[in-house]
Nucleic acid binder design. Sequence first.
DNA 1: CCCGCCGCTGAATCTCAAT
DNA 2: GATTGAGATTCAGCGGCGG
Lengths: 377, 377
Amino acid sequence: MASVLRLGELYQQSAGPRSLVDTIIKGDCVAALEALPDQSVDAIFADPPYNLQLGGALTRPDQSLVDAVDDEWDQFASFEAYDAFTRAWLLACRRVLKPNGTIWVIGSYHNIFRVGATLQNLNFWILNDVIWRKTNPMPNFKGRRFQNAHETLIWASRDPKAKSYTFNYDAMKASNDDVQMRSDWLFPICNGGERLKDADGRKVHPTQKPEALLARIIMASTKPGDVVLDPFFGSGTTGAVARRLGRHFVGIEREDSYIAAAAARIAAVEPLGKAELTVMTGKKAEPRVAFNVLVESGLVRPGQVLTDAKRRWSAIVRADGTLAAGGEAGSIHRLGARVQGLDACNGWTFWHVEEQGSLRPIDDLRARIRKEMAGLE
Amino acid sequence: MASVLRLGELYQQSAGPRSLVDTIIKGDCVAALEALPDQSVDAIFADPPYNLQLGGALTRPDQSLVDAVDDEWDQFASFEAYDAFTRAWLLACRRVLKPNGTIWVIGSYHNIFRVGATLQNLNFWILNDVIWRKTNPMPNFKGRRFQNAHETLIWASRDPKAKSYTFNYDAMKASNDDVQMRSDWLFPICNGGERLKDADGRKVHPTQKPEALLARIIMASTKPGDVVLDPFFGSGTTGAVARRLGRHFVGIEREDSYIAAAAARIAAVEPLGKAELTVMTGKKAEPRVAFNVLVESGLVRPGQVLTDAKRRWSAIVRADGTLAAGGEAGSIHRLGARVQGLDACNGWTFWHVEEQGSLRPIDDLRARIRKEMAGLE
DNA sequence: CCCGCCGCTGAATCTCAAT
DNA sequence: GATTGAGATTCAGCGGCGG
C-alpha cells in the first residue's frame, strides 16, 4: 500500500471522506491508484514515460553535450513491455474516473501511437488530439530530420456513450478572440523562472511541463472544485495549476525528490479568487511565412525569374524554394547578398516579380499569404 | 491479378523493365502490390481510409447537411479489422520499398494511432511525426470539442539501421528563411480550382489532399527521378505532383471513377525542367578537399601561423599538411580539438589565417580551391 | 541603468565513407 | 560488420557580465 503525504491544510473542505484530495501519494502508479475509490475523479492528466530509446551521446555543433532524458524510469525492454505498462495504468485510471470524466495524455511520436491505440482498445473515446507547438524547441543538431517542434496530447472521454463531459466551449472561444479554440496550441517550453532548480542550479525534473499548457487543459475540461488526478506527478505542475485555478488535485509519484519539490511548489501557490478564474489569452505574433510557402502555394512558380527593383540582377526560382543565379544557389537572402557582393540582404524586399508590367517586391506576395493566415499565430 | 492502366507515353524512359512506373494499377492495394518487384520504390505516400466511425448525419447551425465521408471503403467492423487491414498493406509496402526508402502515412486521430503502432510493430523506424495545420478547417458545429484543425503524418524509414534515407535538409532550410524546417506545417485544405469536380460540380473525391502538402513531402524526401508509390491513389495528387517535380509514380486504386479522374489530371501536368528541379545541397555533397591541397597549392605556406577566430590559440602549418602546437601535432581537426580540450572539432571553420588585417577561416580558402576545381569539369 | 555580447540549455530515437 | 577518422551540424530565450 502506498504511503500518503498530506499537504498541510491546503483545502479545509477536503477533510473527511475525500481524504486523498490535495495530496501526493507516494508509490507506483497502478498500486497507488488502489487507494482511490471507483469513479472519484473528474479529470486525469497523465504525462507517462515516453520510452525515448535514445542511442549514444548527442553533441551540439559547438561540441557541448545534450543533457538527455536517460532516467531509469524511461527504460522499457520492448514495445510489448511498454504496451503492458500503458494498459495497466490506463485501466487503473479508468476505474477511478467518473463516468463523465475525461482523460488527457501527453506524448511524443515515440510513445503516443501506442498510448492512443491502447486508449481505443480500452473503450476510451477520443475527443480530440491536440498539438502542443513549441515556440522554442531544441534544434535537430545533425540535420537528419525535421526539427521535432511539437508534442501530442490525446483528450478522451471514459466511454463512447458519455455525452455530458465538461468542455467549457464558450470560455475557450471567448479567450481565443471569439473564434473556436483549435486543436493546435502554441506555448514555450518550460524554462526561465518557472523551471524548478535545485540548490546547485540543476533542473529538478527533466521534463517539467509549462503551466500555461496545464492551465489551458484544466480551464477547458474541468469546473472549479473538480478533482484532477495526475498519475505521473513529477514536479507537480498539475497540482500547482489546479490549486491556482480553484480545482483539487491528486498526485501519484514514486521519487521522493520530485515529491518534495512538488509539495513545496504547490504550497507556495496562491489560489485565484473566483473573479479571476477567467482564461488568460496568449499573445499572437505575426505569422512567419517562409519563401517556400509562396512556391508551394503557386504564388511564385519554379522557373520564374526574380529581379531586383532596378533589374540589375536576376535569379531563377527552383522547385525546392531556393534561388539560382550564375552558378550559385541559396535562400532568397543568401543569394540576394551573393549577387550584390554583400554579407547580408533581406530577400523579401530585394527580389521582385513582374506583375502587369510593374515590379513588385515578393514581400507583397507574402503579405497576401499573411492576410489569408490572419489570426493563426 | 490487377489490371494495369498505362498513362499513354508520359515517360518514354519508363518503358521496358520498369513497366509499372508512371501507371495506375487498378485493384485492391495488397493484391496489386504483388505486381511490383521487391525493393523497387524509393518512397511511399499513403493516405489510407481513416475509419471515421461517424454517427448519424451532421448538420450545420443553418441546418444544411455536412457532406460526410461515409463511403463504403471507409467502413470497418472493428479496430481489430482495421488493424489487420493496416498490417496487411504496410507489410506489402515494406516488401517493395528499397532498404533506404521512407514511407509517409497521413491520418487523423481516428486511425493514426493504430497506424503508428503498427508501423513500429513491423520494425519501421519513425523519423518524425509531422502536423499538417489547416488554415481553413471545418468548424466544430456542435461546440462540444476543439476545432479539429490538423492532420498527422508519420515519416518512417524501412528499418532502424537505415541511415542513408533521403532528406534534403539544406533545401528545406534554405527555403524556410534559413532556419530548420519544423515538424508543424501550415497549408490550406484543397479547394478552389485545385479541387477536382465532376460534370455536375460535385467533388470527385471526398478527401483530396492539397498539392502543396505533397510537394513539401516529395521535395523533402526524394530525389529527381525517384519512384514514389501511392497505394491509395484516389484523385492522384501524388502522381500529379511527382510528375511536375520530375519524379516517377506508381498508383494503386480500386475505383474506376477515381482512376479516370487521376489519369486525366496527371496527363495535363507540365513537368518542370531540370534547372528548376535542382536540389539545394550543403557541404556534405561537395567534393572533398584535403588540407594538404591548400599547402601544395601555396594558399597556405609551411611555417604559417593559424589561429582561432579570437586568437586564443595558434598553431603552425607543417609541410606535410599537419599542424603543430605546444608539442602536439595532428590534422587540422585533431589539433583544433586538442587545443580546446574537446573530443571533436571542424578544423576548417576553427582555424583562421590573417589576410589584409582580418581573420578568415581556412574554409574560405578551401572554397576558392573548390571553385577552381569546378571550372575544370 | 541600459544594451550588447556571450554562455548555456531544452522529452533527441541526430554522420558517413573508407577500410 | 566493426572501426576509424574527416568534418558537418543549432534555435529561441534566459541570465550574467561588462562597457
